[in-house]
């Protein structure tokens, strides 16, 4: 049994102790986790972002255009000083503007038109038509629920009520599916403790 296994088992038990209540062991694991993650992410940013995108192009390839994003990034740090908030806003405006511009056509294509095209497919033959009809009714009534400019009254209200039932059925199915996945994660951790650490279970 290696030292790593003992450390992993100890930290697993520290995190599980949270089920009882907050305690120094959980706090130790929490702070270690946050600290290790910060250090790891800093190293990843340095290796995968700053060196290939700033250091190498600027110092080896002499691409001065890199100075623009570098300056925008440094301007973001100006927020650390009270008077620098206005400077940081320029970088943020650029960043938010770029992301909005990229996101809007992408959303329209991937989220709206892709779903419209799927929803408008012809009904399946035979008993499959019942399934297609259910999908269509579900879609239209859920859309009715998400209408905000009219109160949920009359026909619209009845449609919205049916829509909320469709939503709840979908949520229930999704909940069950995810809980199963979480239980399998727990089983994997318990297997690690009983097999790799305590050797109570036979090996795979």
């Amino acid at each position: 049994m290696t030292l790593q296994t003992w450390i992993a088992a100890f930290l697993t038990l520290c995190v599980f102790s949270f089920l009882y209540k907050d305690n120094p062991f959980y706090r130790f694991a929490e702070h270690l986790f946050v600290g290790a993650a910060a250090g790891y992410l800093l190293a990843v940013q340095w290796q995968n972002v700053l060196i290939p995108n700033v250091w190498t192009p600027l110092l080896h390839d002499h691409k001065l255009v890199v100075l623009i994003p570098l300056a925008l990034g440094l301007m973001m740090l100006a927020r650390a000083w009270d008077k620098g908030a206005g400077i940081a806003r320029w970088s943020l405006a650029f960043y938010v503007g770029i992301y909005s511009g990229v996101a809007i056509p992408g959303y329209m294509q991937a989220q709206i038109f892709a779903q419209l095209a799927d929803a408008a497919k012809p009904f399946a033959p035979g008993w499959g038509a019942v399934n297609s009809a259910l999908v269509l009714v579900g879609l239209l009534t859920v859309l009715a629920y998400f209408f905000f400019s009219a109160p949920h009254k009359g026909v619209h209200g009845a449609g919205a009520r049916v829509g909320i039932y469709f939503l709840m059925v979908a949520f229930g199915a999704s909940f069950g599916y995810t809980v199963m996945a979480r239980v399998s994660l727990l089983i994997a951790r318990v297997q690690f403790l009983l097999r790799d650490w305590l050797h109570v279970l036979p090996g795979p």
Partner: peptide
């Protein structure tokens, strides 16, 4: 807090308690 998902959760859960 952290840009690592579960480290973030550990810290926020600790804060809550």
């Amino acid at each position: 807090v952290s840009a690592q998902q579960m480290a973030y959760v550990a810290a926020v859960n600790g804060f809550m308690l």
